[in-house]
Design a binder for these strands. Structure first.
Lengths: 321, 321
DNA sequence: GTGAAAGCGCTAACAA
DNA sequence: TTGTTAGCGCTTTCAC
């Protein structure tokens, strides 16, 4: 089933069929009608592969997710899927499973498929740079949430502002001795949050770093309270750590809300449904996805963009007075 | 950068370049070497669009997820992504957002892109059937987790067996008056679990159905205990409902483990990290993904397959004695 | 084992 | 406005 079949049935040339079905040129009402009804009768649908080869554009973007099991990323993926589908753009998904080598592979496979743009949440602030820069030579690359290169577009949250807001919120509640519990500092978001904390918090030197896990949240909580007994808030780099911290506090007999507040990042289901609910900074995913679309479809040679969106603290019982 | 450039540099024909790079025909060691080094020198990578058009195969499968925000599906997606990437197959992702019209659209767009197979978790047991049957005329369709048509392959969990196992587990603990809290009965899994419950449970007529939400889990718990005061277990169709049920029980002053047990389905992060941890049936995602790959790449005209895998109950404090 | 050439399905340049 | 035709990049006959 090809344009030829439709053309034959409609009694027109294949070019006319193409013109009608791609809506890219004006055609007489008569031809338009004949082609449409012929296509409908045959149940014809254009072959996107042929079109892509000819147009040199696949209307598809590649998305490389650092770690799809991290609860935040499915939310991001959904926002992107929505936004891109809305533009008629398909999403070719790849998971880097937190591994720079797999990330490199994924990028390479997506480029071979001629994606019109590549969206990526870099695995590592440092080690993903080359992969991104190389991809950026071949197509439009948009870094999302995390960043590793200054040569490619970036759409993310303003972590400094978010950290500042959270600290202000804590200060209002009289909490001025927070400890920062980071996860893997190779992750750019964690890194930025930690740096902002160090710069802005009254206890900026109270920083612990570990990995992305509930257990690390637990361990770090014990360590924090031992090293700094006057701790009145645990400022966690992500939700999983925050939940671990809350659990540990409760295991140690603390009440929540109580003397030690806990706050996380990303506002995933985990903290919203937790008992007690945990405060967390929400990223404006829909806006970020819209910006990603805009950059992805932008005609090349646009100067490198850095779009930072404000995060909003969702205050919940874990930081209540 | 095309085969021509490589051919010119290697001093061979484009046919030879193709033969080497696709590894589909034997070539002399000399030519092989010359082509490989020319390709490496140029940084040439084959254009998958050209290849797809010629081969009439995209090496890409479409995946239509009923609702990507449902925590279970990202896990499934990851398992699929792993399995298909391992075979060199790309995954084109679409989200149906629980809407049969959007599902229909998504399928249509994926077919236009000439996916080699279509994986789908049908939104509705009844209303997704036509979409699936129509797609099945055009390519290999594999229904995953949920099913709507008997004419297309299905890979899922044996819900009858799982329900039976859970009931046996509850019986061992002396709990013989369970209530089933279902979600939307349009979802095939919920429907199957409910039917199995009705058939196998001593209190098979104690069934409540609602929707996929935490609140429904809460509401249903209240209703269950009012209507059947001797209830000793809440058998929930999914984890979100189970967490809602646990929360409600605690709000009502019940202890857990305690007089009323709670069990869910899908073994998502939600129940594993909950306090107390909630028992749940785990689906063998990796095995299911492997089966999906096998069916997706199977040469057409294979009889319709129905592959059911056993679920395993992860017993946790919510069903402890 | 190798090269020349056709053609996958589509669209855009060109001609009418 | 419409048709003819070339060609996107690749692979696979077919002939040697």
């Amino acid at each position: 089933m090809t344009v030829h079949d439709v053309a034959r049935l409609a009694g027109v040339s294949t070019a006319s069929v193409s013109r009608v079905l791609s809506g890219r040129r004006t055609v007489s009402a008569d031809v338009d009608e004949r082609v449409r009804s012929a296509a409908a009768e045959l149940g014809y649908q254009v072959n996107a592969v042929g079109r892509s080869l000819r147009r040199q554009s696949t209307e598809t973007v590649g998305l490389v997710i650092a770690d799809i099991t991290n609860l935040f990323f499915p939310s991001l993926t959904k926002a992107l899927e929505d936004a891109f589908a809305h533009q008629g753009l398909g999403l070719l998904l790849a998971d880097a499973a937190n591994d720079v080598a797999r990330e490199r592979d994924a990028v390479s496979r997506l480029l071979a498929r001629q994606v019109d743009a590549l969206l990526i949440t870099p695995v590592s602030r440092l080690q993903s740079r080359r992969t991104i820069d190389e991809a950026n030579q071949r197509t439009t690359v948009v870094q999302l949430d995390r960043r590793a290169s200054t040569k490619a577009h970036y759409v993310g949250m303003d972590n400094s502002q978010a950290v500042s807001d959270v600290l202000a919120h804590l200060a209002e509640l009289g909490r001025t001795s927070p400890v920062f519990i980071g996860s893997d500092p190779h992750i750019s978001t964690t890194w930025e949050r930690q740096r902002a904390f160090s710069r802005l918090a009254p206890t900026g030197d109270r920083v612990l770093t570990g990995d992305f896990s509930l257990d690390w949240g637990r361990t770090a909580t014990i360590e924090a309270l031992e090293r700094w007994p006057d701790t009145d808030a645990l400022f966690c780099a992500d939700d999983l750590i925050a939940v671990g911290a809350v659990e540990q506090l409760r295991a140690m007999g603390h009440r929540l809300p109580g003397p030690v507040a806990v706050v996380g990042f990303d506002d995933t289901l985990l903290v919203r449904l937790h008992t007690p609910p945990v405060s967390s900074v929400r990223q404006p995913l829909a806006e970020m996805a819209a910006a990603a679309v805009e950059l992805a479809v932008s005609t090349a040679n646009l100067a490198v963009q850095r779009r930072l969106f404000p995060g909003t603290l969702q205050a919940r019982p874990s930081t209540a007075p």
